[in-house]
Amino acid sequence: MEIYEVFRRAGHKDPFEHVGAVTAPDPELALLMAKECFFRRAEGEHLWVVRRRDIHSLKDESLLRLPEGKEYRFPHAYRDVITLRKRARERSATPVEAS
């Protein structure tokens, strides 16, 4: 017997997401069991099963943490765009002095 991880896609616009696992002797039965366990109420439009031992996982999760000083990858780094916009608007209303 093998453990199969079960993934479903709720709609065509969604990514596959992990919903659980089943134990089965082969992929065909794993699909059948996954269908019976997770899809009794039309929870999605597509289904995958993947043998658990075929999944490779990252050994060190800390590698996913972002190093310090990379805030510019996030929207909050630019949040004062709203105050800048207001200031720029006010300034354009007054003539600009030559520098």
Binding site: P75, V81, R85, V96, A98
Partner: peptide
């Protein structure tokens, strides 16, 4: 595209930010 659009939103912010810096800067 879902992921691409999410990142493009951020780029737009970034682009507007540097535009505003120029708009608020010197005449040059």
């Amino acid at each position: 595209l879902k992921r691409i659009c999410a990142e493009e939103q951020l780029h737009l912010r970034h682009g507007e930010y540097i535009t505003l810096e120029l708009a608020l800067g010197t005449e040059h």
